[in-house]
């Protein structure tokens, strides 16, 4: 259902193609990107390169797939983007490959050297580059509006963001007062450390919006001691990854001490929904929220109240 809604949002005839809305919007436009740069865009961009899966998904959600002329290797969704020319990925980004597509807008995120490798050369070539951040879910929705403004699809950006916000509001309205405590592992441990989703990241925000609270709120780095995770004894242990990796983790010493493992509340979540800050995150939040409501109902007060009452998330 959420996927269907998202698909309808893409298909919705917000602007009647690239032309109409863009023509109504006065050009050039000036936008302020995620890191506070003022970017002037002279004409409605027709050849867009979104770098990173999240930016590609955001652009596609605004119906811009036809205008996308290049993606990087990890962009695997939506399907219509997988056949686009590749401009890099695993080993960095090729300025040449990007320039060969004659883009008129580049959308990047500060990861894998993208900013450092690309902003300067692209600016010299006269290609506007907007940088998007995703520090929380609200910022992800804001990115839809920003891409909308930059591409002449401001109304569409507003509409898609508002539709996603409405879904989030609906989830929030159904969130029970007593929130189960959560820890999300975002990778399998290689040398004993557990990689966890920190509270101050967009993934951490998504967990709270789904109706949970963080069992571990103070983490300086994403690497937590498994001992700390086990001692926090969250109501639900989330694992962003494959079921077999979760099973392997549960078999390691100590993890069976967790109530969540013993009582069948160690769940996998989809990496694309919780680690790619795009529209699918809202799908992930809805699915997780539904499962968490089940926990609250099944466990009554006892389970949720038992874990670390002092570490409640506001």
């Amino acid at each position: 259902m959420p996927l269907l809604l998202a698909a309808m949002a893409w298909l919705a005839p917000g602007a009647g193609g690239a032309g109409a809305a863009a023509a109504r919007q006065p050009w050039p436009v000036q936008v302020t990107d995620g890191i506070g740069r003022q970017i002037a865009i002279a004409r409605p961009p027709q050849r867009i390169i979104p770098i990173f899966a999240s930016n590609a998904e955001l652009a596609a959600a605004l119906g811009l797939s036809d205008r996308i002329v290049g993606v990087e290797a990890y962009t695997r969704f939506p399907p219509e983007l997988t056949s686009k020319p590749q401009i890099g990925g695993r080993l960095g980004f090729s300025v040449d490959a990007i320039a060969a597509q004659r883009p008129d807008l580049l959308i990047v995120t500060p990861a894998r050297q993208a900013m450092h490798q690309l902003i300067d050369p692209m600016t010299r070539l006269g290609v506007p580059v907007i940088v998007l951040l995703a520090r929380d879910v609200g910022e992800v929705l804001g990115n839809l509006r920003l891409i909308g403004q930059a591409t002449g699809e401001a109304a569409k950006g507003e509409a898609v963001a508002a539709a996603l916000q409405a879904r989030l509001d609906k989830v929030a309205a159904m969130t029970p007062a007593r929130r189960p405590s959560l820890v999300m592992l975002t990778g399998r441990p290689g040398n004993g450390l557990a990689l966890i989703a920190r509270a101050d990241t967009y993934t951490g925000d998504a967990m709270v919006r789904a109706g949970g609270r963080h069992a571990l709120v103070r983490s300086v780095v994403a690497q937590a001691s498994p001992e700390a995770v086990i001692a926090a004894d969250p109501d639900v242990l989330l694992f962003a990854g494959r079921g077999e990796d979760l099973e392997a983790l549960k078999a390691q010493p100590g993890w069976k001490l967790l109530r969540a493992v013993r009582e069948g509340r160690a769940w996998t979540v989809t990496r694309a929904e919780f680690l790619i800050p795009g529209p699918r995150t809202v799908d992930g939040i809805e699915k997780l929220a539904a499962r968490l409501r089940g926990v609250t109902m099944e466990g009554g007060q006892a389970g949720a109240a038992a874990a670390n009452p002092g570490q409640d998330q506001p």
């Binding site: 990890y74 695993r90 975002t186 040398n191 004993g192 010493p253």
Partner: peptide, 22 residues
């Protein structure tokens, strides 16, 4: 490496760390 966090796993392995054995 995959796009998200796997590099961190390798990096942290190279920095040493003992996993609790069974």
């Amino acid at each position: 490496s995959d796009d998200t966090v796997n590099l961190q796993v390798v990096l942290s392995w190279t920095l040493g760390g003992v996993q609790t054995p069974d």
